[in-house]
Nucleic acid binder design. Structure first.
Lengths: 149, 149
DNA sequence: GGGGTTTCGATGACATGTCAATGAAGCTAG
DNA sequence: CTAGCTTCATTGACATGTCATCGAAACCCC
């Protein structure tokens, strides 16, 4: 096989996977926006914040956890703060830092959105995979995602 | 199982897959930009145009083929035209329309970029999948991507 | 032929993300 | 101590994508 090109199997799989790569997030994101007025990015911020009992996290830690740049999270958090979903507090541990806190309103919005979002993930994705396919996909995704950047 | 939530297996696979969904395009896009000064979107436009013998396609047809909005392609094509990668011509078949043509320069840029891009797709992705995994992924991707929007 | 509807691409307002520069604060070697 | 390096969040310039709207052209059907 000429390594400068893809085999037929590789080409077919790669093309189909690229379609999935664009279509799936778009569909789930559209469902989410329609059900809850949240973007996928908003949802990810809210749900990650909600994991901690006090619903707070330092900006830098949240950025690291989500694999976002601090700049991106700073921009996005400012917009979410203007919408009353989260609040920025000074970090008592580090005067340069900033702690993001999920507001009660933000938590309610997340709780309202979550079941619709899960239903969307199921109907657009999980429902169409066999358990074996899901296992293969999970394994392969973790392996490839964990490669060095 | 409570259908309002994901099982452990589903949750693990979905989380890993979401990481792949963001990390893989970012890595391949960074490689492409470093090797060729093209974005993934640029590359897709160039390579899709190059498929036709005359390296032309009506804007609306290219948009449909790529599953882009016409607005997006119109914006993007204008930027690519300013960089000398493509040109816009009037459509002889439809006075409202517009034909995009790959310039000689654009074709050279694509030819120079393609082998690096393929190497990137291999090293970041294909090389890490077994033939069986690739087959499963291709099948499942096509099935899910083909669902109605 | 001609009026209403649809399709086409362009455009402007806006949302979101990247990148580089900035200033404040923390850290560390000497 | 303190000078220099590092880390943190913010900011502004810019790139890219969405959406609603527009005017021109094509189409449809009477």
């Amino acid at each position: 096989m000429d390594t400068a090109w893809l085999s037929d199997d590789e080409d077919k799989a790669w093309r189909a996977f690229r379609r999935l790569l664009t279509a799936l997030p778009a569909r789930i994101g559209r469902d989410l926006a329609a059900d809850s007025r949240l973007s996928s990015a908003d949802y990810e911020v809210l749900s990650t914040l909600s994991e901690k009992p006090d619903r707070r996290r330092a900006l830098k830690d949240l950025a690291a956890k989500m694999e976002w740049s601090r700049s991106r999270l700073s921009h996005h958090a400012s917009r979410m703060e203007a919408r009353g979903l989260i609040e920025k507090e000074p970090d008592p541990q580090d005067a340069r830092g900033c702690v993001l806190r999920l507001t009660d309103n933000g938590f309610r919005v997340l709780e309202e959105a979550a079941p619709h979002h899960l239903a969307s993930v199921r109907s657009r994705f999980l429902d169409h995979l066999s358990p074996e396919e899901l296992a293969v996909l999970g394994t392969l995704s973790a392996r490839v995602a964990d490669l060095a950047d």
